[in-house]
Amino acid sequence: MDYQLSVNDVHLSFGGLQALNGVSTGVNEGEIFSIIGPNGAGKTCLLNCINRFYRPQKGSIKLEGRDLTRLSPHKIPGLGIARTFQNVELFSHMSVLDNIRLGAHIHLKSGFLTGGIYFGPCRNEEMNLRRHIENEIIDLLEIEQIRKSIVYSLPYGLQKRVELGRALAMQPKILLLDEPATGMNLEETEDMARFILDINEEWGITIVLIEHDMGVVMDISDRVCVLDFGVKIAEGVPEEIRHNEQVIKAYLGEQDLTLSRLG
């Protein structure tokens, strides 16, 4: 089976620092694919290459056969790749609803003229969009009660949810999530894992996930890819990864401590 998103021999370096050294992997349509690895392994770099924040020096990244490395970064969302960030990147003095709506702007066709007339196609477009956002996204993420709040006044855990909502409003095929559960308490982490599963199962969106919380990763992932110092050291179903010697060594070097972390 062909991968929906395939990464072939990607090299990325900053000066003398080799951040990604020939990484090849692929994501199947409709799966939850996790990327794990110690700090500085190049996980976020790989994500940044996929949505073209970085341009890899060598190698190709293909979405449904189309090479992304040659496109400019602002074209990527239009192809159906949305992402969230490790440190929340929201428009901090706008309301939750406005932030989420903004995610949908690439799908709006109305221009100056149709917008000025408003009735007709523009109105329909706006109503459909509002229905989609208010009924589905806000409902799914359980943020009804904060939809009018200004983002910077919200706690971190909720901001992460809003960011996820904004990415969903882009109606992506693939969702890149960079550490969605970092800095959350147990309950929030469980909520986030549930949202990710819902999005994946009910909406059929492919998920690429970076996460340090091994409990989450092992529970929800279909497949896991392990990076260490810019090299892929393992890939497979969570059960294989859990017992992979190299992974255990890369993680802490101390076997029993690692075992306790990998559960």
Partner: peptide, 25 residues
């Protein structure tokens, strides 16, 4: 205007703007 809103988005958060499909350059 759309371009003005995009300019404000970029001023507020470049990464977010880029991931929303705004050409920051």
């Amino acid at each position: 205007s759309r371009i003005g809103v995009a300019m404000r988005a970029t001023a507020n958060d470049q990464q977010a703007a880029l991931s929303m499909g705004i050409s920051v350059r």
